[in-house]
Computed example of a mutant assay.
Amino acid sequence: MVSIINTVDTLHEDMIHDAQMDYYGTRLATCSSDHTVKIFNVRNGGQILVADLRGHEGPVWQVAWSHPAYGSLLASCSYDRKVIVWKEGENGMWVKMYEYTGHESSVNSVCWAPHYIGLILSCGSSDGGISLLTFSGDRLSDVRKIGGAHASGCNTVSWAPAVVPGSLISQPMAAHKPNHVKRFVSGGCDNLLKLWKEGEDGQWREDQTLDAHSDWVRDVAWAPSIGLPGSTIASCSQDGRVFIWTCDDLMGSSWTVKLLHKFNHVVWHVSWSVTGHILAVSGGEDQVTLWKQSMDGQWACVSDVNKGQGAVPTAVVEGLSEQG
């Protein structure tokens, strides 16, 4: 079971929209409607504010850490239509590495690709488009845009994992020729999930559409594939429903859907544990539930976590225990 081992008082002056731990679980990044991004050291139960990043001119919706193979990088996106990539420089000082202004409306979601693919950031926007930004060192080397990806807007993006389904160890897909593809899933205001795949010509194309929600899709999360026999995606929506999508073939051609639960409120976020066996679901007013699949394939709620007012429970955002 999960217990809250620490809380971080962020001192944000408005609503917190996202909180993400870095790869090693020692730093926490938060973002807020107060237009700021904050970074904390959270070792040994303590908390030290190490950066207060100011560059956005509107509410900041989401933050995303890159893999440490590329250094300490953090991406943020905002209602101000901007995506900012922040970099930790000398003496622990954080600076703006790049600012992307290629969208015409709020940028709602950012997500880094698996590190073996390269330093690629996907960005979903209310203008309906999705941008794929590829960096080489500190410079933007390529931009690919998927226009009209979702009617009325894209709310969320999530990359397929770097581990081949059924594998017990992390292996590049390049070692498995049929799976050497770049894929991610998006969700939008058209109530749809869409799977995207890069072609041999470098262009991104819609691979499949997954349709089950009856209102805006608020979040999608592609599960890690370590030890799992196939691919799994969780989605949540303003319709109060959380769905689990599964695909057992390695090419990802046939997906089945199962209702996890119907809540009586909007569900905002879904997030997997590092092994993909526990799903955290958050929605309503500070309600977080944890779900685990039994041996017979049924999903059950294994824990209810109550958030503190104005504080972030780090046990929830940094990873989940597989006990219980």
Rank of each mutant, 00 (worst) to 15 (best):
T134F: 07
T134W: 06
T134C: 11
T134I: 10
F135K: 02
F135E: 02
F135H: 03
F135W: 07
S136W: 13
G137I: 10
G137W: 10
D138Q: 13
R139W: 11
R139P: 05
L140M: 15
L140A: 07
L140K: 05
L140N: 04
S141K: 11
S141G: 09
S141M: 10
D142K: 15
D142H: 15
D142C: 13
D142S: 14
D142T: 11
R144M: 09
R144Q: 14
R144C: 08
R144G: 04
K145S: 12
K145T: 14
K145R: 14
K145L: 15
I146R: 00
I146M: 08
I146L: 11
I146H: 00
I146F: 02
I146S: 01
I146K: 00
G147A: 12
G148H: 08
G148I: 08
G148N: 12
A149P: 00
A149R: 00
H150G: 02
A151T: 12
A151R: 14
S152G: 04
S152Q: 10
S152P: 03
G153F: 04
G153E: 04
G153D: 04
G153V: 06
G153Y: 03
G153N: 05
C154Q: 03
C154R: 01
C154A: 09
N155H: 06
N155W: 02
N155P: 02
T156S: 08
T156K: 00
V157K: 00
V157W: 00
V157N: 00
V157T: 06
V157A: 01
V157M: 02
W159G: 01
W159T: 03
A160W: 01
A160G: 04
A160K: 02
A160Q: 03
A160S: 11
P161L: 04
P161H: 03
P161G: 03
A162Q: 11
A162W: 06
A162E: 14
V163C: 07
V164M: 05
V164Q: 03
V164G: 01
V164F: 05
V164I: 12
P165C: 05
P165I: 03
P165A: 05
G166Y: 07
S167W: 06
S167V: 06
I169Y: 09
I169Q: 09
I169R: 10
S170Q: 12
S170E: 14
S170V: 13
Q171N: 09
Q171Y: 07
P172Y: 04
P172D: 09
M173H: 14
M173V: 12
M173K: 14
M173C: 11
M173L: 15
M173P: 03
M173D: 05
A174T: 15
A174I: 14
A174D: 10
A174R: 13
A174L: 13
A174N: 09
A175G: 07
A175N: 13
A175S: 13
A175C: 08
K177M: 11
K177Y: 10
P178F: 07
P178Q: 08
N179P: 03
N179E: 11
N179G: 04
H180R: 11
H180F: 15
H180N: 15
H180V: 07
H180T: 10
H180W: 12
V181F: 07
V181M: 05
V181A: 06
V181G: 02
K182H: 09
K182R: 13
R183V: 07
R183G: 01
F184A: 01
F184Q: 01
F184C: 04
F184H: 02
F184P: 00
F184D: 00
F184T: 01
F184K: 01
F184W: 06
